[in-house]
Amino acid sequence: MISAEYLAYRIGTSTAVLACVSVLTFGMMYLTPGDPARAVLYHQTGQQPSAEAVAAFRAEHGFDDPFPIRYWHWITDVVQRDLGESYRTGRPVSTMIVDALPATIELAIAAMAVALVIAIPTGVASAVYRGTWIDQASQLFALVGVSMPNFWLGYLLIIVFALHLGLAPVSGTGGLSHLVLPAIALGTGMAAIVTRLVRTSMLDVLDAEYVDAARAKGTAERIVVYKHALRNALIPVVTVVGLQFGFVLNGAVVIEIVFQRPGLGMMLVDAIFARDFPVVQGVVLIVAVLFVVTNLLVDLSYRVLDPRVQFGGEHA
């Protein structure tokens, strides 16, 4: 079983990773060209701000302090769940994230679902019917899927299904119908990668002696494939799917722009253009937290998937 000790160890290392991420995100903003004070004031007033106004803004937000001090102020607030306020709107960043996060998570999960629903059966069929047209077709899909940029696929889907066929709304949020096209646009690339992985993993497992042993019992081929082989083949797949979740969040940023879906992605892009640093830092940090937590969950899920994995003990 997963010991409390192992959990403590993993949470410790995860925290260390997040600490590094926080320094990097904060530092990157520091190095970005363009003075946030000017950008924000320009945005608010619509004209070039006066030198006094800029100086006042910089003083108010502590821009003139040295980096370690600024970082210290920011991080001590962050651990108290205060991500600061947006320079532009003055709204707390945490509130903004809480508002935008569900839409992005919804998109990411839908995309993952699309990817897995396509990839697992395709990958399995590809391995089972190795060398046949089914295998070739699925390999072709994997190649095309992985080569296609998701924003391009997004526009393609909008043109075909929303504009020409009128089967789905072009953009915005709402019910399930608003989710279908973005999820497909985002999920296809991942589906392609996972298909290839499931295929390779299944081919390995289908060669294993225990698969023949299962057949020797008189087990129907369907059960051999979906119970005995797939369960083992999914072990490496889970790692990659977990890692891919980070890339899906990444892709969600682009897809949210393409489909004009409000979410973390749109929030981030707007904030970057406006030099709205607290928002950018907050979003990046939250994405990093999601990424680290997903990976932790993936590692812990090994214990469930693979009884041979032991955590924390010296002897397996």
Partner: peptide, 29 residues
């Protein structure tokens, strides 16, 4: 056909393999 052959497996003909640690599926008890 394969179905009849499969029905013979296990039911009429049992099989034990060489490496017992490789012939049991690692993920089921």
């Amino acid at each position: 056909d394969d179905r009849i052959r499969r029905q013979h497996r296990g039911d009429r003909i049992g099989m034990v393999f060489q490496d017992p640690t490789a012939t049991l599926n690692p993920v089921f008890d």
